[in-house]
Amino acid sequence: MNRQIPLIVCFSFGLVMFLQYFSNHTISRSVNLAILDYWQIIFAFTLIIGVVSFIKVNLTKISRRIDRPYLIVGLLGMISMPFMALIWGIKADSPFMWMFENVQAPMASTVFALLAFFVASASFRGFRARSLQASILLGAALIILLSRSNLPLPYTEHLSELADWIRNYPSMTARRAILIGIGLGSLTTSLRVILGIERTWLGGER
């Protein structure tokens, strides 16, 4: 029963949302809108679960004295945001916004900027023309990079045209094949989910 009811619910909602694609009737549109709203609200609850899990995992680790100072800082950071939002609100020039703009955003973007260095290191250590395929990859990357380097050389114009052609045709078509593959895969998985053949989302039997 624990698995039967969710499977019936999944089938019903899947069928309704599939059929609404083919209907413009007022009732159909209203049902569609209501389900979409419900979906967003339930999704918001899943985010709360994530936050509570984060707190639980951290508290367990703190009690076991694993990386204690760092985890305490993380927890304090987490608690400080709702605390500030509760006291001063979240609008412009609030402490909440200050924390986001001067603590979170600079750190997040700097962590992301570190990738520039790892890309550079990987280019030196791993980007080798070991085979024909690797050489093609290397060649395409070098043409793209050179064409976007603003070099004041006579062939720049042709290089840009070549880079655009590579992007628009051979590169695009490979990406298109991947997209079609993903599309067909998603389509069949969705069908399997609705029909109850694919049940991994139910988790283990409990």
Binding site: V119, A120, S123, F124, R125, G126, F127, R128, A129, L138, A141, L142, L145, L146, S149
Partner: peptide, 10 residues
């Protein structure tokens, strides 16, 4: 710089 590193690595 990246082009230089790729060539040097190769």
């Amino acid at each position: 710089y990246i082009i230089f590193l790729v060539i040097l690595g190769n």
